[in-house]
Design a protein around this nucleic acid. Structure first.
Lengths: 194, 194
DNA sequence: CGGGTTCTGGACCGATGGTTCAGAACGGGT
DNA sequence: ACCCGTTCTGAACCATCGGTCCAGAACCCG
């Protein structure tokens, strides 16, 4: 009954996510979203509510992807744990759930004015940090890490390194340089220097 | 001759910098700036041109502060080089030239839409990275660092750690936790584990 | 084929954005 | 004392913002 939708919600959300990720929340007008998604403003409002609700939904899915992505890396052979994490953190940015882009951007831009975003963002980071910590523990058990090292701190290092790389990417630093930094940084954790 | 200014340019720039740093570029209206600086909108335009010109000027000074701040840490006893860097990177945020806040924020928010900002931001990061590298070299000479370590990568680690901490601060992570992470991260660089 | 439902795109609204400008305020020079 | 140049101020301006609404086309089901 009734006229069926001409668009897939998933596609629209993906397009809107891309737009938000590129131009930020304040930098993206509803007209931009309309252009990016191919939907008229009326349809957007009918399907998702207002701009903030749309962003909240996208952000929530983004965080969920981050949570799940980190958890997924915990499964599998323990001695390859850090390799999996490394691959995830340095993968090309295809906007399919890798943490850092929208998460970092939204946090910086909106945390001071939107409590819901700030809370969710902090939770996502804690989950990510926790996964990093457990991955490092796995690596320790597999003998790939100095047992004396503080796992949480190392997890934080991976996380913050990744976030810095994200920012460097935005600043125009080329992928080769970023990968070299990432490789060396993570290797220095997985394989103690001395 | 002519009516004298009722404000000091320096004070206005500092207030505007604080405002931009807090609410971002798009998130800050000219009314906000007027309120924060105490100047009427007309005076702001008369003194600094439009909003973008004002931001560009503030950003340029911010980057210059960053450049100079990093360079300043290169002077002094070599065996305290990393201590000086650490103190600078972890100092409380008083908006007096410490890099990371406006630099990171502006890069994330504007790099994709403003070439001038992107270019200047990248240059500031390169300078900062270079200073970090030279600081690490100093520490190496003073015997405080594993000679086999890659200086640039370690500098990048410090930088990216700092930027991550900045983001964590915005996300609401308390200062004690951040300092603990920073201390351990930088100690792990300055003092090889084994 | 017709009735009920949903989608669609454009018109519309009040609010707010950045920007401009005419005139008042003021100090120094003559 | 008077003018001149500069600065300050606040109102006015117009484009655009986010948000709402509606008339009609599109579609499914009976």
């Amino acid at each position: 009954m009734g006229r069926p939708r001409k668009f897939r919600e998933q596609d629209v959300l993906a397009a809107a996510r891309r737009q938000f990720n590129e131009t930020g929340y304040h930098g993206t007008s509803v007209d931009d979203l309309s252009r990016a998604t191919g939907l008229s403003k009326g349809s957007l409002y009918g399907a998702f509510g207002d701009k903030e609700a749309l962003f909240q939904r996208i952000f929530e899915e983004y965080c969920a992807d981050s949570d799940q992505g980190a958890a997924a890396r915990l499964e599998g052979p323990e001695d390859q744990a850090l390799d999996r994490l490394r691959q995830w953190l340095t993968a090309p940015d295809d906007h399919t759930g890798r943490p850092g882009c929208l998460l970092a951007k939204a946090t910086a831009e909106l945390a001071s004015e939107n409590d819901a975003i700030a809370t969710r963002s902090l939770a996502a980071y804690e989950t990510l940090l926790d996964s990093c910590r457990r991955l490092v523990e796995q690596a320790q058990r597999a003998g790939h890490l100095d047992p004396a090292a503080d796992a949480e701190v190392l997890g934080g290092l991976i996380l913050t390194t990744h976030r810095g790389l994200e920012a460097l990417a935005k600043a125009g630093v080329d992928a080769k340089t970023r990968n070299r930094i990432a490789d060396a940084a993570i290797d220095s954790i997985a394989l103690p220097v001395c």
